[in-house]
Design a protein around this nucleic acid. Sequence first.
DNA 1: TTGAAAGCGCTAACAC
DNA 2: GTGTTAGCGCTTTCAA
Lengths: 336, 336
Amino acid sequence: MASIKDVATKAGVSTATVSRVINNHPSVSVETRREVHSAMDFLCYVPNRSAVQLNGKCSGLIGVVVPNLINPHFCELLASLEEEARYVGKSVLVKTHQNQPFQDKQLVRTLVGMGIEALIWVPTEAESSLSEWLLSTGVNTAVVTQTSRFFNSVSNNQERGAETIAEHFIDIGRTRFGFIGQDGVDNRKISAFCKKALSHGHRVEKHHGYWIPKGDGENSRGHIHSLDSIVDKITSREDKINCLLIYNDVAASYVIEKLRRKGGNVPGDIAVASFDNTIIAQVMNITSIAQPINEMGKLAFELINKTEKYDHIDSIALTTKLIVRESSLGMTVTKI
Amino acid sequence: MASIKDVATKAGVSTATVSRVINNHPSVSVETRREVHSAMDFLCYVPNRSAVQLNGKCSGLIGVVVPNLINPHFCELLASLEEEARYVGKSVLVKTHQNQPFQDKQLVRTLVGMGIEALIWVPTEAESSLSEWLLSTGVNTAVVTQTSRFFNSVSNNQERGAETIAEHFIDIGRTRFGFIGQDGVDNRKISAFCKKALSHGHRVEKHHGYWIPKGDGENSRGHIHSLDSIVDKITSREDKINCLLIYNDVAASYVIEKLRRKGGNVPGDIAVASFDNTIIAQVMNITSIAQPINEMGKLAFELINKTEKYDHIDSIALTTKLIVRESSLGMTVTKI
DNA sequence: TTGAAAGCGCTAACAC
DNA sequence: GTGTTAGCGCTTTCAA
């Protein structure tokens, strides 16, 4: 690897001059500048970031921590963040915590040790002692997808989204409401869903709500084990539900497939709606709550820069949009 | 932020001793070690990675360059690499080149400048001058998904996969073959497909083969513009094809949807098969060529460690597997 | 407009 | 066992 010294020698100048050229310092003659540039090109010179960093410059590293990269939702988020980072000349260091708080802690610490300038974080849990430590390190942090007591955050109004789904179900004449949610993650949105249903006279029966236990994460192919028995229970009950809210697209696609295999008609018998509006919802024609992912990415970057300027905490909640598709409305899909 | 000097002063020893304690060097007395540790604790000392790196130590950084993060195929690959990296205590620096050779060059250079220990690379083009420079930098590199003249690589036997698809189409009695491929990327697999078809007496007519031009990348939602007009052409021709190979799942899901919207029956009129077997193929029931993604991830990590030990180039080609689903066989899906 | 030289925080010979 | 010292590659005064 060519160093600044090699370039200086090749161009017949001092390292200081090369440094000036690199940093576009005005006080370098056009002639010299040209000379240095061609030397850099010839040697395929790339400045060593560590050395630059050591002089108090920024590391160019942005840490991104997401639950997993199996769910296309987080991939979309990462794609948006990577694009934003590339745009502003930063690099993204990705880590997945697989919904394990222990991993979460480890990863964030590792990232801080690597000298990240900022952290964009989808935490395992809403709050934790880790947050306080993180705050003390002074690393600019933005929480994404959730709100936080400690950091700026950008999330979606999921409660409102859940209400929209309830309203949609009511609009299409559904009466017996059911849901599938992740315990400890989706409680608020599920609660909003139930309340809205109730306000229209539809009580969500306790035995029509299914919770994925905390331990049951997605496996390497994104499969949730509990879903199988849940579908069994849904189809075997006497008082069947006729509409179902599912916490995300991936789970919904699995449940719909399973319901159909068991002879159920979606949306005929059960209308289904879910969250995220990923590519899965698009190809499977699932009614879903869309989040403005790209906007979230942009805002996350804005928030990390705001951290040091203001002493109050920004919690941005973006509005979501219900995308109605066949899983809750329209043509009935039947297998002949 | 406390530095090693502060710790040394606080503990009443030299910086060298502190360094020894940090690196668990055996020749430090228990007493001194204890002293130093408590000083580190007191000052909340965290070693500065840049300084460590500058001394030629490993950065713990693995660069990963993929075309995009929209196609679930690359997300799966990234997920596998991230998991592997986490397992061996390394961090992944992701970059996407969006199939632009110019980006590719920029990104690889940036990554090298950041002091990556190794690069796992899905290049824009099979070979380029960039490879030679990269080779000269001595960064251990593994090419994934393609083969390379310069670096170890792990890829799939895509030609064999394409042949398998041709054989499958023949098995189910199809006669008029068509394909959609990406120009400059899929030439070899398409060629294998055509040859295999021909060897069974089915010539793939020139006007039944469609190429996505090089410029037409996936947009932010993964949509390929050329696909629209291709579907129009496919459905409007007099001598219609009755089987179609498509270069990947994402494109296939779009084409199938479009064909069905236009009244086409898949697989009744046209059997469709594609590559990658991502979650999209699973939920859409598309016959697809599965790649052993996790194995690829593991092998990529093995290959980067092999680079410096041997002077020959390893090109591992894994075997793929045809997963037959409804898009080419089985129940006909109709909309009522 | 340019060069010499002093560090940034850490490691690793080499002394003692 | 421990300290001294010379860098790693770069930036940045300070002089010239």
